[in-house]
């Protein structure tokens, strides 16, 4: 007893020290983590609120000294005047950087991106939900082969589809239309949607399926009345993934779109970056505009996204 006293006391002191050390280590690690993730973004946002004059200061102003919304204003009320060599010079005599008249294309591009993304989401749901139900709950010959085939299509690299897609889309006369994007984006989104939903349906008890059918539901009614309402988390995940994938897609859009009729936000934003005369503060404002929807989705729907991303990870 008496020997245990001091030993216990030093143990307690060591425990306390250990606890503080752990807290300190967690703090430092968290700070590094937050810095790593946010620093580049903060810099992007910060410089989008700077004027061309301020953005070119050395060393850079980490926080804008004279914050301005002129870059965003230009996007929402794009200058209608024609841009010539002279007006370029006039825009910002200090540096030659300017806000391009093509800024007016940003909002229509955003609308294009939205139309494409929403269409892709709807088609994904229509196509993937019944398929996932069949794969998860109906025993049929060819089921394993179907799952294997769908998973295989998931690993086809998009760049390998570019050449045939281009010829295919051109022969259909669909070049420079939103339809070309909607169709081809299905290739990169549908397999994953089927995968997430199948996984989720498999986790719901088979007896629910049996109960519904004995209760008088056809297969389709079972799906609509029982599985769809119970699978909202997975359906939300599918909506988010399909939306993000379409909103962010660049390669295929670069190939198939040629005019602002069909160009999506990433294409317009990218077109600015290759023009050296355009002010980087304006480009950054366009970038901020492009990341707002995804960032909001990530922060608001973190739970759904994480469960979708990690579905099947442990099994593998």
């Amino acid at each position: 007893m008496s020997a245990a006293g001091p030993a216990g006391a030093t143990g307690h002191v060591a425990g306390e020290r250990h606890r503080r050390l752990r807290i300190a280590a967690l703090w430092i690690a968290s700070l590094i983590f937050v810095g790593y993730v946010t620093a580049p973004l903060v810099w992007l946002v910060s410089s989008s609120f700077q004027s061309e004059r301020e953005i070119t200061s050395k060393p850079p102003h980490w926080i804008p000294h004279e914050p301005t919304v002129q870059n965003f204003a230009a996007i929402f009320a794009a200058p209608k005047k024609d841009v010539t060599y002279e007006t370029r010079r006039a825009a910002d005599p200090a540096s030659g950087g300017f806000i391009p008249s093509t800024a007016a294309n940003l909002l229509p591009a955003m609308a294009n991106s939205l139309i494409v993304a929403i269409s892709v989401v709807i088609l994904n749901l229509l196509v993937a939900i019944p398929a996932a139900y069949a794969l998860a709950k109906i025993r049929f010959r060819g089921r394993d082969a179907s799952i294997y085939a769908i998973l295989t299509t998931r690993v086809i690299p998009d760049i390998a589809l570019v050449v045939p897609f281009f010829l295919f889309i051109r022969n259909l006369g669909l070049l420079d239309t939103l339809a070309s994007l909607i169709i081809t984006y299905l290739a990169v989104t549908v397999p994953f949607s089927v995968f997430i939903l199948t996984n989720y349906f498999e986790g719901l008890p088979d007896e629910l399926d049996k109960a519904a059918r004995v209760d008088g539901c056809s297969r389709l009614q079972t799906l609509l009345h029982v599985y769809v309402p119970l699978s909202l988390p997975a359906i939300v995940a599918v909506i988010l993934f399909a939306f993000l994938a379409s909103w962010n897609e660049f390669l295929l859009a670069l190939m198939f779109t040629q005019t602002p009729n069909s160009q999506t936000l990433p294409i317009i934003v990218a077109s600015f970056t290759s023009d050296f005369t355009i002010s980087f503060s304006f480009i950054n404002a366009a970038g901020v505009l492009a990341i707002i929807p995804p960032v909001l989705i990530a922060l608001l729907f973190e739970r759904y996204l994480v469960s979708g991303l990690t579905a099947g990870a442990v099994k593998g």
Binding site: P205, E207, L208, K210, A211, A212, R213, V214, D215, G216, C217, S218, Q221, V226, L230
Partner: peptide, 18 residues
């Protein structure tokens, strides 16, 4: 198919619609 048979069923897990 079951929806066109006049049967009702009670399951071990009850299978109530949550």
């Amino acid at each position: 198919p079951p929806d066109r048979r006049d049967v009702a069923m009670v399951f071990q897990s009850y299978a109530l619609y949550p």
